[in-house]
């Protein structure tokens, strides 16, 4: 089919280069070419949020981007957050609060939470809910996710849990 395009990028801190079809979705590139299957594809039209990654420190839907757009970029996926032995604090909080069930949407939530903790005040649960509203979870009803994020916000702000 089409010619392939050369791209170089950093994924979870490691440099990579690849030749990709221009039409290849970033999500498919990460999953199929890089083997980073933690980024999940739930809708392919930017609604469900399961494929959320960060590109140059900012969250993005990897199903709405092409792999060629990652060229020169610094990509983070859920695999770069923490490991099973040494989980990131956000992952720990999700476990403590039982904020996941089937786990399919979870990587997208974790990437979103990482960003909003850095960028938003999240003064109350309503603000947390609004900030998370681009991610769909079908199992938890969100209650435990909001509690996990509340705990993380309190830690960030030095507020003790009520």
């Amino acid at each position: 089919m089409s010619d392939r395009t050369h791209i170089t990028l950093t994924v979870n801190g490691e440099p990579f280069e690849a030749y990709v079809e221009p039409r290849l979705l970033a999500a498919d590139f990460l999953r199929d070419e890089m083997g980073l299957t933690g980024t999940h594809v739930g809708c392919e039209h930017g609604v469900c949020g399961a494929c959320t990654i960060t590109l140059d420190g900012v969250s993005a839907r990897s199903c709405l981007m092409l792999a060629v757009q990652l060229d020169g970029g610094d990509v983070r996926t859920v695999e770069g957050l923490g490991t099973t032995r040494e989980m990131h604090r956000i992952q720990q909080a999700f476990r403590e609060h039982h904020a996941l069930q089937c786990g399919f949407c979870t990587p997208g939530f974790l990437m979103t939470v990482g960003e909003i903790l850095d960028t938003l005040p999240l003064r109350d649960d309503g603000e947390i809910r609004d900030a998370l509203s681009g991610n769909i979870c079908r199992c938890t009803g969100y209650d435990h996710i909001v509690k996990a994020v509340r705990a993380l916000v309190n830690e960030r702000d030095g507020v003790s849990d009520p």
């Binding site: 299957t37 980024t39 099973t84």
Partner: peptide, 19 residues
């Protein structure tokens, strides 16, 4: 009890069919 399936699902190390 904290879930035993969580570590893999939280770190992108789960294995779904599409993976």
């Amino acid at each position: 009890v904290r879930r035993l399936e969580d570590p893999r699902l939280l770190t992108g190390r789960g294995r779904f069919t599409a993976d």
